[in-house]
Simulated assay, not measured.
Amino acid sequence: MPLTKSEHSAAEQGLGYTFQSRFALLKALDLPEEDALFIERNDDVEFVGTNGSLSLASLKHKAIGDKLTDLSVDFWKSVRIWLKHYNASGRTASRARFLLFHTGTVASGSFLSLFEEDSSDDIARAAAAAEAIARTENKDLIALKGALDSLDSNEARDFYGRITIFTSTPRITDIPALVDKRLRTVRREVRRPLFERLEGWWTNAVIDLLTGTRSEPLGVQEVSDKLAAFAEEYRMDNLPINYRDSRPSGQIDALQDPRMFVRQLRTLELSENRIQFAIIDYYRAFEQRSSWARENLLISGEIEEYEDRLVEEWARYKEICFENLASDSAEAALLSAGRELLRWAERDTGHLRIRERVTEAYVVRGVFQILANASPSPRVHWHPRFLERLAEILGVAA
């Protein structure tokens, strides 16, 4: 059942800010790679061309069915913003254009239709209509009148001639499908996760821009480069890597963690730091393959076949490590053999990749720990006597 919005809800404002970022990303995919964008500088979005051109864009994400009328605040508030920039940038010497992207339509009979993208009316008529509305006794336009009156007739015509209204602008929920159409060179089944990766990076870049962490504009070339890099990860011989810097939440307790793979590592009498690194590998590999599964990036049976391959390679090297041990071998010899087997799994198995171009080390290291954690019995173990001792413990417990 849908929840009723509180009268204090800021959902619409929040949606508007999110729309700015998502819409700017969509436009960036269509702009020349030499161009750049600002968010919330002189307007909602600002498009900067290498030739010195500038487009200030006001974005209005409105309720379905909303219409622009002669006295729409959406238009006149934007005019106030644009006029301030027009005056500051030399009026007729300015190189700025002013764009209004609105998810609704222009009401029938409104003079604003003269500013629509496909309007064939000459700008003198549009400027005259705008000036006539601005002279009406409307309280919302009082503050704007003085600024408009400061323009002479040529400047007014020049100013209004820079305005274009784009109606039926895509809604925020429509944008992923529009991005999808721009990714025709990418396999259909990976376009959605690819968009989500790209938007995640873009959102962080926008946040850096808004917080001042970043001073330079968002470059269209950056978007192209990042998209190309992400697309490479979704090729048939590759998989995306999302957890390179991730760590489990909370404190890592190498001494008390009850999981089977951690108990195995403690049996080898490893340092606490060694065990902590293994716990991190386990976490990253587990989360990574869960992400691949959620995004439907894996071929049926691919994980199982990969695990079987690792188990076979482990079994081969285990025989090498354990071949000189006897039933009465000292604990020191057992520990040495087990540590060597673990060292091999952590350091010498980089060639055992789930796909040819998946070279991230935590994938294979972590999957070995996942196999060491299998229930009811681990599929790999390190200490030569671990399974025997586990059976004894379980037998006593039973």
Results as ranks from 00 to 15, higher is better:
Lys181Phe: 08
Ser150Asn: 11
Pro176Ser: 01
Trp201Lys: 00
Asp174Met: 06
Ile207Leu: 13
Asp152Thr: 10
Asn204Lys: 15
Arg197Val: 05
Ile142His: 14
Val179Asn: 02
Val206Gln: 01
Phe166Ala: 08
Pro176Ala: 03
Lys145Trp: 07
Glu189Ser: 15
Val186Leu: 14
Leu148Gln: 07
Thr169His: 03
Thr164Tyr: 01
Lys181Cys: 08
Glu199Gly: 02
Phe166Thr: 05
Ile207Asn: 06
Arg157Pro: 01
Glu199Phe: 15
Arg171Val: 08
Asp174Glu: 15
Arg157Gln: 11
Leu194Met: 09
Trp202Leu: 04
Ala177Gly: 03
Ser150His: 10
Glu196Ala: 08
Arg191Cys: 02
Ser153Arg: 15
Val190Ala: 14
Thr169Leu: 04
Val179Pro: 01
Arg192Gln: 13
Ile142Thr: 13
Ala177Phe: 02
Gly200Cys: 02
Trp201Asp: 00
Ile175Asn: 01
Thr203Ser: 13
Leu144Gly: 06
Val179Met: 13
Val186Phe: 15
Ile163Asp: 07
Ser150Cys: 06
Phe195Cys: 08
Val179Ser: 04
Gly200Leu: 00
Ile142Trp: 13
Gly161Pro: 05
Ile142Phe: 14
Ile163Lys: 04
Thr167Pro: 03
Thr203Trp: 11
Leu144Pro: 01
Asp158Ile: 10
Ala147Val: 06
Asp180Gly: 05
Phe166His: 14
Tyr160Glu: 03
Arg197Pro: 01
Ile165Phe: 04
Glu199Arg: 13
Thr185Gln: 15
Ile142Gly: 02
Thr164Lys: 12
Ile207Pro: 00
Leu178Met: 06
Arg184Val: 14
Ile175Arg: 04
Leu183Ser: 09
Ala156Trp: 08
Glu196Thr: 02
Asn154Gly: 14
